[in-house]
C-alpha cells in the first residue's frame, strides 16, 4: 500500500470520534494544494499528500479548541503542534496527530521562476522520485525536485513527525546541511546594506497580515496588538518603519516559540523574505538558551522562565 492509502485507512479508523481531520486536497490547479477538512469518508477520496502539500495545518488547531479533531502533519508541522501543546494553547488529548515521514515540499516561487512567465493554469503535474513534470499551456517542463525544494527542507532536521498518534511512511534522514547560503550571505552584509534591504522590502509590504494569519503560533488572531487601539503599538501609516515595526512585533512575540515552518514567508504576496528574520532569531535563541521550539514536549519557551545564573549571557563591562 502507498503512503497515501495508509494515511486514508488510518484516518478512516479514527474519523468517527473526530469533529474533522485536516489534510490537503488539490487546489485551483494541478500545481497547488489547499487544505481539506475531512468530515465524511467520501471526503477522503480528495485527500492528497506529497511535495505540493505545503501548508502547515497546525495553524487551524486553535480554532477548534475544545473539540476533538485530527490533523495531518509533516515533520516540521509537528513541531508547531508540540509548541501549541507546550504553551497550553491546545489540549494534546483533543488532537489525533497523523504524522508523515516527509521528503520535502516545493517552493512555489522557485517553480514559478522556472516556468515561462505568466504560466496561468497548470494542467497537470506528475511527481517522480527526483523530478516534477509540469504541463502548462500544452508544454511539459521537467524540473529537478532538488532545484525547487523549499529552503526549509534543505536544512530540515526533523523530516519525520516528532509526535504522532499514527506515523505513516518510511522514516527519512535529516538534511546534511544546517545553514542556508542566502542566510549567510545576508548576515555578512554591512548594517547599512541590511538597512537599505529592509527599507526596500518593507516599502513593498501592504500590511495584509497574511504572514501573521498563516503562522501557527500567532494565536492572538483578532486581538493582535498590530491592529488594536488599546494598546496602540502601530499606526496605519504604511511606511517602511511602521511595516518593519510590525515584523518586529511578530519576531518578538515568536522569540523562542517559532518552529520555523516558513508559512509566513510562503504566505507573503509580495515575496518579502521574512525567514531571514525568523531564522536569525531562532539561531540566537538556540545559542543563548539551547532551545529549539517544538522539538520536545514539556518545554517552557525560554522567555517565560529564567535561570539565576545564565551561563550564556555575559555582563558587559562598564
Amino acid at each position: 500500500m502507498s503512503q497515501l492509502d495508509d494515511l486514508k485507512s488510518a484516518i478512516k479508523d479514527r474519523l468517527g470520534e473526530l469533529e474533522c481531520v485536516i489534510g490537503w486536497e488539490q487546489g485551483y490547479d494541478a500545481l497547488h494544494a489547499t487544505p481539506l477538512f475531512i468530515r465524511t469518508e467520501a471526503d477522503l477520496d480528495r485527500l492528497v499528500i506529497g511535495p505540493l502539500a505545503v501548508h502547515n495545518l497546525a495553524t487551524y488547531l486553535t480554532a477548534y479548541k475544545g473539540k476533538k479533531i485530527g490533523v495531518v502533519v509533516k515533520g516540521c508541522d509537528s513541531r508547531s503542534v508540540i509548541e501549541l501543546v507546550n504553551e497550553n494553547l491546545v489540549n494534546r488529548d483533543d488532537i489525533v496527530v497523523f504524522g508523515l515521514c516527509c521528503d520535502g515540499v516545493v517552493s512555489q516561487p522557485k517553480i514559478r521562476a522556472a516556468l515561462p512567465a505568466d504560466p496561468g493554469f497548470v494542467e497537470s503535474v506528475t511527481i517522480g522520485t527526483d523530478e516534477l513534470k509540469i504541463t502548462v499551456a500544452g508544454q511539459t517542463v521537467t524540473l529537478k525536485k532538488s532545484d525547487v525544494l523549499a529552503d526549509k527542507c534543505r536544512v530540515c532536521q526533523h523530516p519525520n513527525a516528532i509526535i504522532a498518534d499514527v506515523l505513516i511512511g518510511t522514516k527519512q534522514n535529516p538534511a546534511g546541511a544546517n545553514s542556508l547560503a542566502c542566510q549567510e550571505e545576508f548576515e555578512a552584509k554591512s548594517d547599512a546594506e541590511k538597512l537599505a534591504f529592509w527599507q526596500e522590502t518593507m516599502s513593498r509590504c501592504i500590511r495584509c497580515y497574511a504572514c501573521r494569519n498563516a503562522c501557527p503560533m500567532c494565536v492572538c488572531r483578532d486581538y493582535c496588538i498590530a491592529t488594536s487601539r488599546d494598546p496602540l503599538w502601530l499606526s496605519q501609516d504604511n511606511s517602511p518603519a511602521e511595516n518593519m515595526m510590525f515584523q518586529m512585533v511578530h519576531v518578538s512575540h515568536l522569540a523562542g516559540r517559532c518552529t520555523e515552518c516558513g508559512e509566513c514567508e510562503r504566505a507573503c504576496p509580495v515575496d518579502i523574505p521574512l525567514m531571514l528574520l525568523r531564522r536569525y532569531m531562532n539561531k540566537q535563541v538556540k545559542d543563548v538558551f539551547e532551545h529549539q521550539a517544538g522539538t520536545a514536549l514539556d518545554q517552557t519557551p525560554p522567555l517565560f522562565t529564567f535561570k539565576v545564573e545564565e551561563e550564556r549571557i555575559h555582563e558587559r563591562g562598564w
Binding site: V219, C224, I225, D230, W233, L303, F304
Partner: peptide
Amino acid sequence: TCPQGAIQLEHFTDN
C-alpha cells in the same frame, strides 16, 4: 509576557 496586550499594568500601560 502577554502577546495580545490583554493584561496591562495600570499607570504603566503600553499606551
